[in-house]
Structure formats: structure tokens, C-alpha cells
Design a protein around this nucleic acid. Structure first.
Lengths: 257, 257
DNA sequence: CGCCGTTTTGAGTCTAGTCAAAGGTGGTGG
DNA sequence: CCACCACCTTTGACTAGACTCAAAACGGCG
């Protein structure tokens, strides 16, 4: 039995497997975020899958690609060929309206996935921009799809990952639709904290990779408002901020803002 | 060659096929929305697919299910078993936060699809409520998945549908994040108009199935604001509203609000 | 050390929210 | 067929929260 894992965000889409191929497809241990050996994409599928050609897997998991800070991994209307998992660094996805309005639709941390927006029309529907010098694993979609066709557990996993993205986006819509500025900032920090935890970083102490501007855009508020709300949360003794460094002092208090 | 189509929203996910099974799986002609014979789900896949057992398809496309106005097709945390396409009527999907906050995440018209939110965790992550007496086709997910495993064009179509939902949600986020109340209402009417057109209804003359409350919740504004903005658009000569009946007078003007 | 981009804070404005009341609409039953 | 009721919609007056504009403080990097 061979097992493959496609790492995803944490909300249930990335299920652990009892049988894992290491060596050839080393899995990044979540508690060792700076693990030295990550020359290949960590790929994981929920259940063990039928034995299959390792070369086949190799052909899907391409050589990593580096993207410099503020450069694009892909842009709106680019031909869709691949999905990506973040091996190092951090990205944002941005939609640009014809009138020039921009909306940050998400931030992707190490281990999270990018590119599913392109499956539908075979062109990407947003820009993916690196927030710092980053590196991704490139997964050829056509090959992934044919692998899914052979390996049913992989197919199911891919369905789950896409559904997970749908669910996450719903949560974001809810935030944009119903929350006050203060609640948005609090919720954002908590979400980030959860995702950091899932990746093996400290849940209470981390550095933001995005500017107040980008954060505010994502949250549907202005950068000055983000700043004010952070100050307010600090006054309430819920967080401790120094520029981009965040320390969550009172997690419970933060979640009940 | 046999061709099956799973009808979806209009943004490119539902591709027409040259070879279609009629008779047994009659496709609702888009220009005849009230077509009498729709006792079975219209199922359509992008490309022709390999011949397969018709009984297999029959077992996936279950008997239709009726849902009365204001009743739930499914609720948050319900076990996920099936996805649904709307055969008649109209639904809304709603997320409820623990603090009681609600957010309408979408409206599903005739021919559109519901339920992908459940794939990820095998439980639904929102409520799907009928806005009027409605009817859906129930598609067993487990069977659909195994069919996808056999029929690669069906697998690709399902991936496209889910990606389409991701893209649509991104658009909604952009609206919630960047648009003024007036723009939101205008954009909402235009979106609805496009979807009505895609379903064979008039693009300029239609009835809303939701209340101002539900519309406002979806748009991230209050019901009074929806009402005010509709009045404003009417004063500008862009639309003509009488309660739930909408007539788009100046489409171009509306899109440049 | 000085520069540039980012962040913080303040003051004033404006959009959308709140509260309230009146006007419509559709469905039900007499 | 009409009257009544419940619910939905519109409109107005006032308020609050977030935005805009502006200036100063901070921080990282060459």
C-alpha cells in the first residue's frame, strides 16, 4: 500500500494516513516547520491507495518553483495548468474588478494550496502574489486528474479539498457580511493563529506577512481602521502588537469580542 | 457514445454536449422554463462519455424531493449524503454563527446546484432553505463519486463545478469587501438577470423570490438600505420595481453605477 | 545616518445603521 | 367577494461606525 498526501488548509481536508511513503516523498513534519529536507512536495491522501507507478507520481510533482516577493505565481486570465502548494513563504490571492477595485480573497501559508480557481474555465480568475520570497510545488493538473481517475482515494481527497475551499470562503463571506471592524480583526488573528498551529508554529506568537493595507482589504475595511482596532484590542489587553509581530494575550477574550 | 449533463450555474461550468441522452434523461430546454416533462434530473457532462449502464445512472438520480417554502433541504451539521439540483423553485443557503449572526451565502435558482459544502467534512456547513415551494433532484454523492471514477469526463465536470462555486464565491467576497450599498444592489440585480437569462427567462423582467431582508443579508447591508437603494436606482431611471417585481430599464447604466 | 514605505493617531465627514411609523400586499376565512 | 391580519416594504429623522485627509512616528535597509 502506498499513501500520498496533498497538504491543504487545516479544516478537515487533510486527513492523516497510517501508511505513508517517506524517503521518496518526504512529508514535512508539522512540528518542524524549518525542516531541512523538503526538496519535494509533501503529498498525502486520506486513505491508503492502490500501488502505482512511482514515476507517475514524480511526473506530477514537478520541480519546485521560486517566486520573489511581490511577484505573481499566476495572474488573472493566465492559462490554468497547475495547482500549487506553498513550500515556503506566503501568498495572497487578489481579484481585480474592471474598475480597478481590488479584493484580497485569501492568504495562503506554508502547506496550503493555490490555484483551484482555474479549474472551472481553464483560466485563473485571480492573481496570486508572493508576500515574501516564496517557493511552491507545482502540480500539473492534467496529470493529477488522470491520477485521480486511477486512484479513487485521491479523487475523493481532491473533492474534499475543493469543498474545503468553498466552506472557507463562506466563512469569509460571513465575516464580510456581518461583523464589525473590531470583530473582523479579532477573527482574522484567531484564524491565522489556528492555521499557524496546524503548521506547527506557535499559536500565540507570530509575524504577519501582509501589510495593514492588505489585511484591511481582505477584511473589507481600511488600513487605518485595522490599525485602530489593533490598538483597541491592545488596550483591552487581548493582544500585544509591535508592527508585524503579534502576540495573542487573551485568546478567549479575543474570540468573544 | 452517451452524454450526461449535470446542470450548474452559468459561468462556464455547464458546457454543451453534442451527444445527449434525451428520452430517458430529458434535458430541460433552457428556452422552455416551464416545460412539462421534467420528471428526471437533467444531467449533462461536458464531453461525450464512454457507454455505461443506464441503471447505474438511474440509481444516482433519485426520485425528486419536494421542499415546502421556508423548510430546509438540509441543515448545518446534517450528515452529507447527496448533492441537489433545483428542478423548480428557489433556495437560499445560510450560515449561522454561534452568536446567532446569520449570513446568506447564496441563492440557488432553477437548474443550479446545492450541497458541495458537505463534501469536505461529510457534514453540511450551512442551511439550505426553500424560498418558495420547491423541488430538487437528489444525487447520491457516493454513487456520483464512483461514477466519476469510471467516467473521466464526469470527474472533470464535477471538478469544474466545484471550482465554479469557488470562483463565484470570490466574486461575492469582492462585492462584500469593496462595493457601496448602491453598487451592491445594482450588481445583485445584474447577476440575477444573467442567471435568469441563462435559464431561459427574461433578462429584464423578473420576480424576486427573496425578501428585502434576505437580499440585504446576502449583500451585507440592512433591508432598509436595500429599499432605499432600489428607490434611488428607480429615480435614476435604471430600474422599475413594484415590490418583488423587477424590470431592468437601463442595463448599461446599472452596470456603471 | 537618512530615506522610504508603513503604521499610528487625530479631526472632521459621510455612509449606512437604528428606530419608528405609515403604507402595501397577499392569503385566509367569514 | 370582501375584510382582516400578518408580514413585508417604504420613508423619515437621527445616530454611530467607518472613511477621508493629514501629519507625525516608527522601522528596516542601503
Amino acid at each position: 500500500m502506498l499513501s500520498v498526501q496533498l497538504e491543504t488548509a487545516e479544516n478537515g481536508t487533510s486527513l492523516t494516513s497510517s501508511v505513508q511513503v517517506r524517503g521518496r516523498f518526504p512529508v514535512l513534519p508539522p512540528h518542524l516547520p524549518n525542516s531541512a529536507d523538503h526538496s519535494r512536495l509533501p503529498v498525502r491522501v486520506a486513505e491508503g491507495v492502490a500501488p502505482l507507478d512511482l514515476n507517475r507520481l514524480n511526473s506530477i510533482i514537478c520541480t519546485p518553483r521560486k517566486v520573489k516577493r511581490s511577484e505573481a505565481l499566476y495572474r488573472t486570465n493566465d492559462q490554468f495548468n497547475s495547482i500549487y502548494t506553498v513550500r515556503a513563504g506566503c501568498f495572497k490571492t487578489v481579484i481585480t474588478h474592471r474598475d480597478g477595485n481590488e479584493q484580497v480573497t485569501g492568504f495562503q501559508l506554508r502547506g496550503e494550496t493555490l490555484g483551484f480557481d482555474g479549474v472551472c474555465t481553464e483560466r485563473h480568475s485571480c492573481d496570486a502574489i508572493a508576500l515574501e520570497d516564496s517557493e511552491v510545488s507545482v502540480i500539473r493538473y492534467a496529470l493529477l486528474v488522470s491520477l485521480c481517475h486511477e486512484v479513487s482515494s485521491m479523487q475523493r481527497q481532491l473533492f474534499r479539498m475543493m469543498s474545503g475551499e468553498i466552506v472557507r470562503e463562506s466563512g469569509h463571506m460571513m465575516m464580510l457580511g456581518t461583523m464589525s471592524a473590531e470583530q473582523r480583526v479579532a477573527a482574522f488573528l484567531l484564524d491565522l493563529s489556528d492555521r499557524m498551529t496546524a503548521r506547527g508554529y506557535s499559536p500565540v506568537d507570530f509575524n504577519l506577512r501582509m501589510t495593514r493595507q492588505e489585511m484591511g482589504n481582505y477584511l473589507g475595511i481600511k488600513l487605518e481602521t485595522v490599525s485602530r482596532m489593533l490598538s483597541k484590542l491592545q488596550k483591552q489587553g487581548l493582544v500585544d502588537t509591535h508592527g508585524k509581530h503579534i502576540r495573542i494575550v487573551n485568546r478567549l477574550g479575543l474570540s468573544s469580542v
